[in-house]
Design a protein around this nucleic acid. Sequence first.
DNA 1: TCTATTGGTTGGAGCGCTCTAACCCTGTAA
DNA 2: TTACAGGGTTAGAGCGCTCCAACCAATAGA
Lengths: 333, 333
Amino acid sequence: MVRPTMEDVALRAGVSRALVSLVMRGSPKVSELRRSAVLKAAEELGYSPHAMARSLASRTSTVLGVMVSDLHNAFFAEVVDGIDEVAREQGFDIIINTGGRSPARERRALESLLSFRPAGLILLSPVVPATAIGKAAEQLPVVLVARSSRVSTVDTVNDDGEQGARLAVDHLVSLGHKRIAHLDGGEGTQAGPRRRGYVAAMEAHGLVPQVVSSEYTDAAGARAIRSLIDDDALPTAILSCNDFNAVGAISALEDAGLRVPDDVSVVGYDNTSLAALRHVSLTTIDQPRAEFGRLAADALLQRVREERIEPVRHLLNPSLVVRSTTAPPGGPR
Amino acid sequence: MVRPTMEDVALRAGVSRALVSLVMRGSPKVSELRRSAVLKAAEELGYSPHAMARSLASRTSTVLGVMVSDLHNAFFAEVVDGIDEVAREQGFDIIINTGGRSPARERRALESLLSFRPAGLILLSPVVPATAIGKAAEQLPVVLVARSSRVSTVDTVNDDGEQGARLAVDHLVSLGHKRIAHLDGGEGTQAGPRRRGYVAAMEAHGLVPQVVSSEYTDAAGARAIRSLIDDDALPTAILSCNDFNAVGAISALEDAGLRVPDDVSVVGYDNTSLAALRHVSLTTIDQPRAEFGRLAADALLQRVREERIEPVRHLLNPSLVVRSTTAPPGGPR
DNA sequence: TCTATTGGTTGGAGCGCTCTAACCCTGTAA
DNA sequence: TTACAGGGTTAGAGCGCTCCAACCAATAGA
């Protein structure tokens, strides 16, 4: 359980510790003779460099910290894939930590990540207050994904929720729908832009917006539908705030004896793997998640290398994915 | 961008660096006067301890490394919750890394985790070869979740897949089913025990097992059903290898004009959040995932504290969750 | 009164590494 | 012959921290 150090390798190879260090860092100014001797000794001892000691001594880090607000949401997994891809290309490692959707736990996760003195930090949809983010940003480069910020030292990567909602409304209108309700995401991240986009698109089409208060869960979607039915206010099409909500809405509609899309069309948001399941086959709005990750990592590494000072605000275009839950009012002809 | 050190705090508080260290570690042998002075200075400077320097100096670590083979699978999120809970209770932090389902990437993730010299390692359903795990286990305590091992220095936490399959079969038999097919998980982790449990339970009931080769995806589940229909070999009940597979099977059954559970009953495995969606409402087998995480963390910390040498093999009992996809053959009366 | 004892505090060594400056060659130019 | 350059190598300081031994009152016991 005791790992060999550089000293051990140096001793065994008959060279100095500094030389071993050079070999480990792939320096060109080492003779082939010594290099192979060192590598052989390292191999025999099962030596691998101590990342922390290295980073302490060099006062640099090749680690990027990633804080995922909710590990349960597969959305983030794809963003992490994008981050990982870029980071690895450029010789950086990532360490992940999770906030479990609770501000307190998230704060702790942040602390923990910071204590490793990573080169930079990427926060995925964090729920901690902006001041906490600002404080972190004083110490190292920070990039926010799926959350906006006005702090000038922080870069952000988001999708254009207004445009996404507009895409959905345009799609439904082109199918012939006139009564389209929006099940709203309430306080949730990105709920605001989606709602605004919906309202603007409806008005642009000369239609009356109908915003129903709801949440990012399937139970909430079902509840919203039931209240619409009770109020006799059911439209011919629904734009949900996200896929979970949409699936809940569909269940409630079916429970009420209505068919989707024949009686009511439903559009989700996020294009989660759930939406792609053939049993669900939900028309939804896709966000380029891996691209989020790649852009975030790129932006962060630019700051790490001090190539840029001004903040960057990426706003990516979502796209419509048509599946089986939308059709003209009255059902597919 | 330059973080304050202990020295800075000591200077500001008018004490020695060693005293600051004591305060930071919550030592009782510090007067209240100094303690508050130090904490005040630290607060003002925005100081937080440097985890790497600490771990280097103390030759100990309060970090547990967690390798998640697939971040996309929400299964692991709950296991991580369990790990996190126990770790935090006992003053440990966790850092997560992901293998992205690829052995090469997983190996790299392992290397990276190891380079931080954590106190121990928890591997969630790793796909790297056993030798790589054995090598890691020579350097620090290792616990495996959802993967078995015969290495005596490695602890394991698994669910009893045989029993889970048996529960499902017993449930279907008690509903009156006699022809029950199993859509097999092939090479997937835990597919073996589930298949064995299914076969044993069928035989115990005097029924003929019908194993259909399939995989852990919804597309594979749908394919298996179609081949059963083509061969005119469709039974009255299906036990899928996991929830995704079951959802795919349901889609294919509905596409073929069959109703679930009226014409065919379907049981999944894993009780993912997918199964709980009201639109899906899948009868399935639940694994105590958070408990997996808690037990894994407990086992690891026991080894970290050198309280135990012999390996531990946890085999947890799964349980049946009855929802809406199972009924007596011919449908609910 | 002097010596123990105890609670609180501190300097210094050292964790495993990197980095700078100095060093030692050997080969080449003056 | 001396000077110089430059590739290859090394000693030593130091990164931010912990830990040990020593130290310093202040009090208690004899």
